Amino acid sequence: MTRYEIKSLSIGGILDQTVALVKDRFGVLLAIAAVVYVPYGLINGFVMMAKMPPRPAPPFEPAVMQQYQEAVMMAGLFTLPASLLFGLVGVPLANGAMIWAVSQSYLGEPVSFDSTWRHSLSRALPLIGTTFLYSLAMMGGFILCVIPGFLFMLWFIFYAQGVMLEGLSGSSALSRSKALMKGNMGKAFVLMLLLSIISAVIGGIGAVVPQPHVGVVLQVALQAVVVMFSAAAMTVFYFSCRCDHEDFDLMRLAAAVEKSDNDASPDRGATY
């Protein structure tokens, strides 16, 4: 039996369970995130440092700021291939592996670094394709108007959980997420707002480090921690929504009782 609370949770309950999960599985989750986020973060950070001119000092003259912005854009071109590979492939696979690790731990099942990545890679095409579809939906929503973009983002927030934990893909994963979000939109908005604030505060720590190279390394490490915490929080929230809509907690309890009864029943074919 799992030692975590599998039930409909408040925002505070979701964060409490998330902290407990991350604390218990910190090494595995950090290793999963580090495989993707650390190489990309270091490459992107150091290349940008090498190619970017010094930041202008105040007062900020328009011509100087324009030159600086153009230099930043040119520096970004050097990291564009790595950024595309990271966003289109690395992020979905790492997110899938973290979701699997959190779900297995939350449900009281054994988990390891190897098993999480094997499961994520086995779902690579659905993960990448559904992530691309989710991104298109959000982009389309924001192009039409800001509000539909936020609406789509909240509706389809569990797309990766649907792919990794229910074997869905594409529009089926998006529809499943929308169904689970019924009655939970306000909670999702507050949770995402809190996670964004946590990310901004933690991410800003590296920016104030006076030594640039140390700052890059620190920011990369903190980013890995932020993404694994966010993946854990959203997965706990996913199970909370399932408890709301499907009595998932009662289903788990009934399955555990049935298994206990079967284990306790004597084998009629045995000789005593």
Rank of each mutant, 00 (worst) to 15 (best):
E70F: 04
S196G: 14
V201A: 12
G96R: 01
T271G: 02
P210W: 11
Q223E: 14
V102C: 08
R176L: 03
M228H: 14
D261N: 05
M181T: 12
G41M: 04
Q223I: 12
F237G: 03
V220G: 06
R3K: 08
V28Y: 00
Q104F: 00
P126K: 01
I202V: 15
E61K: 05
A200L: 10
Q66V: 07
D114N: 06
Q104K: 09
Y106P: 00
H213E: 12
R123T: 10
M192P: 02
I143G: 05
T271R: 09
I6Q: 08
A137F: 08
A200S: 15
A101E: 04
S265D: 07
A270P: 00
G141P: 01
A57H: 05
L195R: 04
S122R: 13
L107A: 07
D261M: 04
A57S: 13
V217D: 00
V38F: 12
G149C: 07
V190I: 15
N95I: 12
E109M: 13
C145F: 15
V35A: 08
P59A: 00
K23Y: 14
G140P: 00
F60E: 10
Y106V: 13
M192A: 06
K178N: 09
F142S: 07
G12S: 10
P62G: 06
L84D: 09
M181C: 11
F113D: 10
S169I: 01
G108Q: 03
P266A: 06
S115K: 08
G162V: 09
V220E: 00
L42F: 08
N95Y: 13
A97H: 01
G108E: 06
F26P: 00
S240C: 05
F158K: 11
A173R: 00
M65D: 08
I157L: 09
V47D: 08
D263M: 10
W155M: 11
P210K: 08
K178R: 14
D267Y: 03
A101M: 01
W117I: 12
L250N: 07
Q223T: 15
I6M: 10
E246M: 09
L151F: 14
P53L: 09
E246N: 09
V47A: 11
